[in-house]
Amino acid sequence: MTYCVGLRLNTGLVFMSDTRTNAGVDNFSVTRKMFTWDVPGERVITVMTAGNLATTQALISLLDERSKIVSERNPTILEQPTMFQVARIIGETLREVIADSGSEGQKAASKFKASVILGGQIKGGKPTVFLIYPEGNFIEVTDDNPFFQIGETKYGKPILVRAYDPDMSFEDAVKLLLVSFDSTIKANLSVGLPLDLQTYTADSFEVSDKPRIEADDPYYQTVSNSWGEALRNALTQLPSYQGD
Results as ranks from 00 to 15, higher is better:
L7I: 01
S240N: 14
Q242D: 10
V70S: 11
Y200L: 09
L13I: 01
Y164Q: 04
N27E: 14
Y200I: 01
E72N: 10
P166H: 01
I60D: 09
L177F: 01
P127W: 05
L160A: 03
D18L: 03
A58Q: 05
S190E: 09
G151N: 08
S103L: 05
L195G: 00
Y241Q: 14
N52W: 07
W227M: 02
A58T: 12
K210Y: 02
A50H: 11
D244A: 10
P134R: 11
A230P: 08
T201L: 10
T36Y: 06
A187F: 05
Q221M: 08
L178V: 00
D216L: 02
I122Q: 08
T31H: 15
I60W: 10
I159K: 03
D38W: 01
N137T: 15
N74Q: 11
V5H: 04
F35A: 04
V30I: 15
L197V: 05
L7C: 02
E72H: 03
I98M: 04
V97G: 06
M34G: 03
Q57V: 04
D203E: 12
I150C: 07
L177W: 05
R73K: 15
I185Y: 09
N74V: 09
G12C: 05
E152R: 05
S169F: 00
E135Y: 06
P127Y: 12
M1R: 11
L7Y: 10
R162S: 12
Y219P: 05
L78W: 10
A54I: 00
R32K: 15
Q221G: 03
D182C: 02
G12T: 00
I159D: 02
K113C: 12
I132G: 00
K210V: 12
L118P: 14
G41R: 01
S67P: 03
Q198K: 12
L131P: 05
M34R: 09
K157W: 09
M1I: 06
E214P: 03
P194I: 08
